[in-house]
């Protein structure tokens, strides 16, 4: 069975949820403490949501210096699949493993609500055959993705935009090919409505929405399960 490392930083609070989702998808979970230096024998790495180091400095800015991050960077450089969700995405941008930065939300408030996303761009180990639109929740105060013009052009041009906020939950069920790019769709103000980006090689993916929260019908929805089963499909 393939194994996934889930890293816990001080202040991570979605690590248990992530382990639950990975296990539901039929993969082994290996819990890794941020002070560890080795990932062990794993096939993928996931960085969970939360408030690493309280997010008292820029989100993710301290966690990137955690001892385990050297191993994560090496794993990514060797082409291993790495997924960062919410705070995990913020940590990945701080390490420079995925492009862009995450600013305070446009309205300056924490937002916990459903969003609808397109799935696009190049193939990643987490989105192989996943078809949009999908409905997932966001829960963050700093999810407003931003990059300079050159980076933005490169990210768009190279197919590194993997998820984009479109429409509102009401749009999903009767979804047509054309989903509106509305303010309500990207409530955090993200540039080009970008919700998730990958690195140039496509093996490192970061996203603000929480796929691990929607893996069961009774607790909100099942659209997130596709991300985990896609990975399982790739790892075999």
């Amino acid at each position: 069975m393939s194994a996934v490392a889930v890293v816990t930083f001080p202040g991570s609070n979605c690590d248990a949820d992530l382990r639950h989702a990975v296990a539901l998808a039929g993969m082994d979970v290996r819990s890794v403490w941020h002070k560890d230096r080795e990932l062990g024998k794993v096939d993928a790495v996931m960085l969970p949501g939360g408030f690493s180091y309280g997010d008292y400095l820029r989100c993710g800015a301290i966690a990137r210096f955690s001892p385990i991050m050297e191993a994560v960077a090496a794993f990514a450089a060797a082409g291993g699949p790495v997924l960062g969700i919410c705070n995990g995405f913020q940590i990945l941008t701080e390490c420079g493993l995925v492009p862009g930065v995450l600013l305070r939300n446009r309205g300056l408030k924490f937002l916990c609500q459903d969003v609808v996303l397109t799935v696009e761009g190049k193939r990643t180990p987490f989105t192989g055959n996943v078809k949009g639109p999908i409905r997932l929740p966001i829960a963050h105060a700093e999810g407003n993705w931003y990059a300079d013009a050159e980076t933005l052009a490169r990210v768009e041009g190279e197919g590194q935009v993997i998820f984009r906020y479109v429409g509102t939950p009401a749009h999903r069920d009767g979804a047509t090919a054309e989903l509106p790019l509305t303010e309500a769709g990207a409530p955090n103000g993200a540039l080009h409505h970008i919700a998730g980006v990958c690195n140039a090689a496509g093996n490192v993916l970061g996203l603000m929405p929480h796929p691990e929260r929607y893996v069961e019908a009774t607790t909100g929805g099942t659209d997130g399960a596709a991300i985990f089963s896609a990975l399982r499909g790739v790892l075999g």
């Binding site: 916990c112 929480h210 607790t219």
Partner: peptide, 11 residues
């Protein structure tokens, strides 16, 4: 909407 009402995935 300002409260995380889903973390823990039991809601």
């Amino acid at each position: 909407r300002q409260y995380d009402h889903q973390v823990g995935t039991d809601s």
